[in-house]
Computed example of a mutant assay.
Amino acid sequence: MTMLNDTSSVLSLLATRKSASAKAMGEPGPTPEQLQTILSCAVRVPDHGKLTPWRFILFEGDARARFGKEMRQRWSELNPAHGDDTLGFVERLFLRAPAVLAVISRAAPHPKIPEWEQTLSSAAVCQNILLAATALGIGCQWNTDWVAYDEGMAKVMGLSPTEKVAGFIYLGTSSVPLEDRPRPDPAALLTRWGA
């Protein structure tokens, strides 16, 4: 059986990386120093034109519960037939982990740099966060959920009209052992042009 999240080398980590489940996270979350390390690694991604087409929003401590009340209110507006059980679940989404880091894509039209490349850079930031957190022994999961796509919640987060959530990265300590899932065979996905 392969050891998951093997940090003995960079290649070992890449070959064994496995997300923790946000549903099974608890304390502790990253320390301020660990968070700084994670963010320092996050920004070392390809960024055509040096545009820095991303930024971060951190939800920690009481801010998670306050944001949860905003999510509950918005979900209630969107789904008035839903009862307290569903609303309570929505309200507690960000309480599942000690810290939730939003990666915000600032991709926008540019005379030279395609917007798609800027968006891909934001995805690379999310992946670097996962790799850095895992290397530090911190459980992490990249999610989006409805919150990432809702205009009302974008206003609550203070996003500009051109900004989008690339991901919410849950950071904490897994309360259950990690289990791998089946992975595709890379050879089955490879074609050779002209062959």
Rank of each mutant, 00 (worst) to 15 (best):
W142Q: 10
F56Y: 12
F56P: 07
G83L: 09
R106L: 05
E91Q: 13
Q141R: 01
E117T: 13
R72D: 05
V45Q: 15
A123Q: 01
T134K: 12
I129F: 08
G88D: 12
W116K: 06
D47K: 14
E70G: 03
A81C: 04
W116G: 04
P80L: 10
G88T: 02
L93A: 12
L87A: 03
R96C: 01
T52I: 11
R66K: 15
A133I: 14
A124H: 10
A81Y: 04
N128K: 02
A123K: 00
R106I: 02
L101Y: 10
S105L: 06
W54T: 06
F56N: 05
S76G: 05
A107V: 11
F59L: 15
W142G: 06
V103Q: 00
E60R: 15
G68Y: 06
H82L: 05
K112A: 13
L101Q: 04
H82E: 15
L58C: 13
L95C: 09
V125K: 00
P109K: 11
S76A: 11
E77S: 03
D145I: 01
N128T: 04
A65L: 05
T119F: 09
W54R: 00
V147F: 04
A63H: 10
E115T: 14
I129H: 12
S76I: 02
P109V: 04
F94N: 10
V103T: 12
E91S: 11
L130R: 03
W54D: 02
A63W: 07
A124F: 10
L78Y: 03
P114T: 06
P80H: 07
T119H: 10
R92M: 00
I57D: 07
A135W: 04
G88N: 14
R92Q: 05
Q73Y: 03
E115K: 14
H110V: 09
V100R: 01
L131K: 01
A99C: 15
A65V: 09
N128R: 02
I129W: 11
K112G: 08
S76R: 00
H82N: 11
I104D: 08
A63C: 08
I138T: 06
L131R: 02
T134F: 00
A81R: 12
A124L: 07
P111Y: 08
H110G: 03
R55S: 15
T86L: 00
F67S: 12
I113K: 13
V125G: 01
H82R: 12
G137N: 00
T86A: 02
E77K: 06
T52M: 14
A132G: 07
I129Q: 07
